[in-house]
Design a binder for these strands. Structure first.
Lengths: 146, 146
DNA sequence: ATAAATTAAGTTGAATTCAATTTAATCACA
DNA sequence: TGTGATTAAATTGAATTCAACTTAATTTAT
């Protein structure tokens, strides 16, 4: 086996990760369009539907995104009336976000999305489950390390 | 288990895919900086180091990217002197790309990258291998379907 | 043979992402 | 106490990505 074997596309590990990630986000698109949400907006909303209230920093840690990405997206969600921003009284550097009534209500309808999305993967259910286990395990390593 | 369980971030399958993909691309960055390549440029070069000559369309199929993404990146690689573009004589709609001498030479040095990248995953080697198998299997479904 | 349909690339515009920088608030500690 | 360091968020600029559209070449069907 030659020294360049490792440069072959088929031997890259990151590549299928990157390609599949983009493909799945494309699958979300038609489902999210109905709610006028992009994928990034959607995952921010997912966190808020669990947390009710969270700082930009913590949001970034959960989503592995930095403030440069999150700030403008949150701004748009505020404009759409789904979120509210306010400063944390005990430390004015911290900006918190929370759901508005409209944001809370959206949860009731959007619950259809995971179900609909997974219909694209009929037949791959176990592969998908295994995939998630592996991804979570590896991703975990990056929680501190970085 | 309540109806909203599926909306929890920890129960999303796409999310760790998306997050890990971005993280790994960040790991490539310092390695690729040395060669003045971005990740997208790198995977295009990977294909050319295997194929020697390929059309924009085929390149897109291999990388799951469309011409809107590939065209400007190829343009930049041409500008950097790594690739050349020319039209396919038998069908002038088709634009082909091939390596320049400089592009070919880069392969010799850049072969260090896969090795260096995987050092970030010491201890996860099997998880990584399993991950790749699962990814490839699922990604395969999108080859025709879509 | 010619008009309509298809195909390949490229362009445009919106959104994301990250690195680097800026601003403002808080903290550390001498 | 006050100065320097740190921290949180936002901003800026470069690059990516995709959808939608345009242009040019080829193919199809009449």
């Amino acid at each position: 086996m030659d020294q360049f074997e490792k440069l072959k596309l088929e031997n890259q590990i990151c590549f299928p990760l990157y390609a599949l990630s983009r493909k799945v986000i494309q699958l979300y698109k038609p489902l999210l369009d109905k709610y006028n949400l992009t994928y990034t907006q959607y995952i921010i909303m997912l966190v808020l539907w669990e947390e009710e209230k969270i700082s930009i920093k913590e949001l970034g840690e959960k989503l592995y995104l930095d403030s440069g990405t999150i700030s403008p997206v949150v701004k748009k969600l505020v404009k759409q009336g789904l979120l509210e921003k306010f400063r944390f009284k005990e430390d004015e550097r911290i900006v918190m976000v929370k759901l508005t009534e409209k944001g809370k209500e959206m949860k009731e309808e959007i619950v259809e999305i995971p179900e609909k999305l997974y219909r694209n993967f009929e037949g791959d259910k176990e592969a998908l489950f295994q995939l998630k286990e592996n991804l979570d395990k590896i991703l975990e390593e990056f929680k501190e390390g970085s």
